[in-house]
Design a protein around this nucleic acid. Structure first.
Lengths: 210, 210, 210, 210
DNA sequence: ACTTAAACGAGACGGTACGTCGAGTCTTACC
DNA sequence: GGTAAGACTCGACGTACCGTCTCGTTTAAGT
């Protein structure tokens, strides 16, 4: 079942790939997603259109890869600053779930607020809402790994009695990721550290009188 | 601050307006948002393109109005079926917050699952993520009124002691709207009545051991 | 065989008619024939589009009437200046054909050079080349009467022996009108009094050695 | 003074160029110049609109090139039929100017009467009346070369005493080209061989009694 | 080091949709 | 009933990108 003579990735030009990522990210920030056209990316990257079409099926796929690349770099840098040899692979676990969650959510708020991430991330999120295939990839490569960290931390908490035994971690984590995502995507309210803190508290202790 | 000789809305063709709404909703369902072009809407509605451009600035604006119209009709029908003279303007309040919320959230899940609503709503939600202006209008005209119902119900609950006094209703309601929105938009998990129920329970009582 | 309820010309607005003529002539001069649109004429004349469509079938017809009106006014003025009670209805006949023709052709050159006449006349001439119906009307109402004057003068000349007996006046006159028309329409050379004089001489005496 | 990144003519599609010429000529004949739209040409030629806009600035320019191409082909064919290796580059010169002119003018009348040439030629002539730029090109590329042939023949005649010494050939030739052009463009009378003959006679010997 | 095939830049191509303009028709309100 | 105003359907405009397809020109692997 031969592809249309699939390209030989060993001979791929790294130079072009990087230039395309940079062009895509720059354009989505400067002129917005709809005007981030394949032609514009090619022109800005000094690359032939065919080179883009050879390696990606659509402009959203280009942007997704560019953004994944950006994220990797960013988390590598972050880990480096923290003096680590490797990228962090788990949430902090000080034994105080509330504090740990607040710490992480504040960082998430900061990232959502950073314009460098905001433009491409919004574009991808939006595309994913409507384009199931891209949404799945976005979910799998970006969201899921992050959500899994919460699952792990919650399970650890459960073992230690920080979290009630019957709780499904997969649903529990949505008590804060959901609201954050909604405020970010639909702008239903401001994103702040104070808000993040409140979310954690409400999620942990509920809104009914104890 | 004169527009470009704004059109005279008293002479507007009601016939065309309705045909445009129907065409837009049908197309977004049948071929998806990207292929729901202005030309296709015009052709299907038997209308000149100019008639669309005269009254709306973009295809997303057309779809928004079409969807608002659809929502109005739908809620009018719903109220009628329920034997009411007017459209429902508040959440049920039986004195049992948990039950009331579950009832409403189950209905919300059903709506999110209804393909008639799904396609246009997704398209608008996606557009709103990226297009701040449209997002604001979507929020103001559709989301906000619904969120306000929760605020009202929660305040009533607070007075009656169903909800802790210090709770900010505006944040509290996100404990369930956020997760639902996220599952719907980002497909992070299935949308079911059982899920809705769990959300309400977690939100009310928290995930920490009581 | 009723027309589409033919308009009642007795109730026609003279005011509008004049305004339309002025607008058409002004526009054809200022922006050229292709941009002399019905909408532009209506707007400039402060007139509804329908008023134009009621009385004329096309923009070329409007321009033709406007130009005929202009010509009438112009020749009326001319006659007035010459101290005549009526419009001139014949070429001068001093008994010297060569002198008479030179006099008339010089005047024709002057008119062709006058920018007030040039723009609309060119537009109409061009339209007439391609649009047989308009061409016929242009010929009948404008050209033919002028050509007839030459026929009359030539016949008078023939009786007096100024013109050879066997000559067909209808063809003879084209020896100067043809070249003038060509230089004007196709810009094959400059239009000047000297050129007009030469034409008359060549036409009268031929180019072969006598 | 760089154009807007002028296209690379070495990579131009010959196939498309020919198809466009054929479509333009066919359309101008079938539906007339005003309905010979760029879109119709593109559709008929099986070509994208952009391919037309890339190489020509307007539909009149397309038609001019198509017509020039047609003329070249036609005169090539003509020469071939006459058993010549090259295209004829001069008028016949038998020593009898009258006969030579009559021969050529009869051929001109035939061409003006041929519907294959008539439609595009009229359209171009009309456009040239109003559009100075196109008129100049029409003149330079089509008319001028033909007129020059007369100049050459007349000068030869002058040397041989067929034409009076003082005659300006550039004006003399208009004695027949002007009338022919006028009859063709303005339909002031029928175009026939007899008419052509008369024109030559009048032009050579004048209309005054000898 | 040389050959050679694939990736590359460039950009012309057949298309689709854009947003605008004007044509010609129709309706409304005014005089 | 003619008129000014202007909304309507329709079709073409000229532009922007799409995704495909040549063109030479690098460039890197395998001799």
């Amino acid at each position: 079942m031969a592809q249309k003579t699939a390209p030989d990735s060993t001979r791929r030009s790294e130079r072009s790939r990087r230039a395309i990522y940079e062009a895509a990210l720059a354009l989505v920030g400067e002129v917005g997603y709809p005007k981030m056209t394949i032609e514009a990316i090619a022109a800005r990257a000094g690359v032939g259109k065919q080179t883009i079409y050879r390696w990606w099926p659509s402009k959203s796929a280009v942007l997704l890869d560019a953004f994944l690349d950006l994220s990797e770099q960013a988390s590598a840098e972050l880990s480096e600053k923290a003096g680590l040899d490797e990228v962090a692979t788990a949430l902090p676990d000080t034994g105080d779930l509330e504090a740990d969650l607040k710490y992480v959510l504040r960082a998430t708020v900061d990232e959502m607020t950073d314009p460098k991430f905001d433009a491409p991330a919004r574009a991808l999120a939006a595309e994913g809402v409507v384009n199931e295939q891209l949404g799945a990839e976005f979910l799998e490569k970006l969201l899921e790994p992050q959500l899994q960290l919460y699952v792990d931390r919650l399970r650890a908490g459960q073992e230690r009695g920080e979290v009630a035994a019957g709780i499904d971690p997969r649903i529990a984590l949505e008590l804060w990721t959901g609201p954050l995502a909604q405020r970010w995507m639909q702008r239903t309210g401001p994103l702040s550290h104070a808000y993040a803190d409140k979310l954690v508290e409400y999620a942990l202790y509920g809104i009914a009188p104890r």
